[in-house]
Design a protein around this nucleic acid. Structure first.
Lengths: 136, 136
DNA sequence: TTGCGTCACTTACAAATGTACGGATACATT
DNA sequence: AATGTATCCGTACATTTGTAAGTGACGCAA
């Protein structure tokens, strides 16, 4: 398929909102953005158009207002973006980023527990994979 | 201070190498980059110049070759970059990224153990902070 | 029916980014 | 000394990005 060009930072912010509030009009996204910072309506419009041009969303006219809907799953975009970041900033090794996040960002009580669970699960899976390898 | 403009993706790749191999000439960085991908010497030169202009490095002439040295610690750049990413892609919540990393990237045995340790430490600190709060 | 606000679509444009050419100069080798 | 080789520095230039103004259509309130 046609190698979508990656989203710019600003486009990503908009894409995130599109995922968050589901199919939405320019105005809805604009309103949402403005909760956090000033933004021109036309600017948001441009971003949405570009996001669509890049192949990450589709739009349809509902009457005279255009409704945008995400086309690519967040997962995909996040993976690509994060992979790229890890490549450039850490030479491809993900652990430094994990470390950074755990150390620098304030992780609360609840999250610590969740993390512990995640790690446990990971260990399980890791064990399973080990078995698989034994089968070969 | 003068609000450094942030580094672009490509600049970051170069900055990382500069941190990695310490003060270095354009050629050294260029050679390093070329281990992974083709790159024009002059292009690397431009990136280094821009990194310096943005205030993230300094350079001095050693004879007739210029030696660049990082000026800002990786930590700082990483923090800013990651914070920005988290803001745009996750609305400011770091956990989704942590989750993503743990789930999507293949984390090996050794890393699992390290993670567990990190989480343990975190818990400790969290407990300490709790005490602090009690004092107030 | 005359505005007013809302949309869509077009077009603009400066700044940032990626990529690189070309001239000047100095060093090394013939 | 002449020529090739490595650097530096300035300059260029197409794209992408951020930001928005301008134009025309439509629908509702006065």
């Amino acid at each position: 398929m046609a190698e979508k060009p990656s989203l710019s930072k600003s486009e990503m912010e908009i894409a995130r909102l599109l995922w968050k509030i589901g199919p939405a009009t320019v105005r809805e996204i604009h309103t949402e953005v403005c909760k956090h910072r000033q933004a021109d309506f036309a600017t948001i419009q441009t971003f949405l158009r570009r996001i669509e041009n890049k192949g990450y969303a589709t739009s349809t006219l509902q009457g005279r207002t255009r409704v945008y809907a995400a086309k690519t799953r967040p997962r995909t975009v996040i993976r690509d973006t994060v992979d790229d970041l890890i490549e450039r900033l850490f030479g491809g090794d993900a652990m430094p980023l994990v470390r950074h996040l755990i150390e620098e960002r304030n992780i609360g009580r609840t999250e610590i527990d969740e993390l512990r669970n995640l790690v446990d699960q990971l260990e399980q899976q890791s064990a399973i994979k080990q078995e698989d390898r034994d089968d070969c």
